[in-house]
């Protein structure tokens, strides 16, 4: 375990070196947050009665999304991509570590570090200046945080899967772009999931994407009551385990057919 913790911490320290990027990212997120709450507010004003969410809930959902969007799985691990392109991946296999666990740890770090770096100031700004709601209750906060952690684990499983796909496609851009579209469409980051049409809801409930941010956000706001938290967590963990199993199987196959070129 110590080894994986060390990998995690090294990765966080690496990412923390890029403070300017984080600051720019925060400014950008604030701008989009203002824009999106304005747009959704305008829609809401047209027909408040039919909305499945109240305006303050929607504003809160949007600001949570702006603050935490870096935890979404939108591409393979850039470091491993570079290693695969340059052949440095050979060194990864000379470590006495389970390669899947190694890469999964890298994915967790890749998502968690920038997310934490941005989330704290952004949530502060949103709560102070943009009317983001506090958690519905202490229990709702606990359920939201637990679900957020599971969402991170789920997201890391997705990233690791995208990373493993690089063993076949090298550049991996195609698969990553498709993944980005699916994540943007079905996670709730673009449009809160409760606002999707009724007939799509069963499918959304089944897909893994709602476990990324929608579940945690709605638990936090009490839009999903805290009693239903176990169901949300089970859905997240079930998908996480399934994606980990798939990733492990693919990685095993990928390594057997791997060719490390050159040198």
């Amino acid at each position: 375990m110590r080894a994986y913790a060390a990998v995690l911490s090294a990765r966080v320290r690496t990412l923390l070196q890029y403070r300017a990027a984080a600051l720019a990212g925060i400014a950008c997120q604030v701008f989009w947050g203002i824009l999106r709450t304005a747009i959704f507010g305008a829609f809401f004003a047209m027909n408040p009665a039919r909305s499945p969410m109240s305006l303050p809930e929607m504003v809160t959902y949007i600001w949570l999304g702006q603050s935490l969007f870096r935890m979404l799985p939108t591409g393979a691990d850039g470091d491993v991509r570079a290693l695969i392109r340059t052949g440095g991946v050979a060194y990864e296999l000379t470590r006495p570590l389970d390669l899947y666990a190694f890469w999964y740890t890298r994915s967790v770090a890749m998502l968690a570090a920038p997310m934490l770096l941005r989330a704290v100031p952004l949530l502060g700004v949103a709560a102070l200046f943009f009317e983001m709601l506090p958690p519905a209750s202490p229990l709702a906060l606990a359920a939201g945080l637990a679900s957020l952690l599971c969402g991170l684990l789920l997201s890391a499983a997705c990233v690791t899967l995208l990373t493993i796909s690089l063993l076949w496609t090298v550049s991996g851009d195609g698969i990553s772009r498709m993944a980005v579209i699916a994540v943007w469409a079905f996670s709730g980051i673009l449009l809160p999931l409760p606002l999707f049409p009724e007939w799509l809801q069963p499918a959304l409930a089944l897909l893994p994407f709602r476990g990324l941010i929608d579940g945690p956000f709605r638990l936090y706001m009490g839009h999903i009551p805290a009693e239903q938290a176990p169901g949300v967590l089970l859905h997240q963990l079930g998908w996480t385990l399934a994606l980990i199993a798939l990733g492990r199987w693919l990685l095993g196959r990928g390594i057997r057919r791997m060719v490390v070129q050159g040198g």
Binding site: A6, V7, A10
Partner: peptide, 22 residues
């Protein structure tokens, strides 16, 4: 190729390897 972490000081790569190899 290098097995050192590109962005980290050398000594941190060594410490990381220390933990990886227990």
């Amino acid at each position: 190729r290098t097995q050192l972490w590109w962005d980290l000081p050398v000594v941190e790569s060594f410490e990381l390897l220390r933990d990886i190899y227990k």
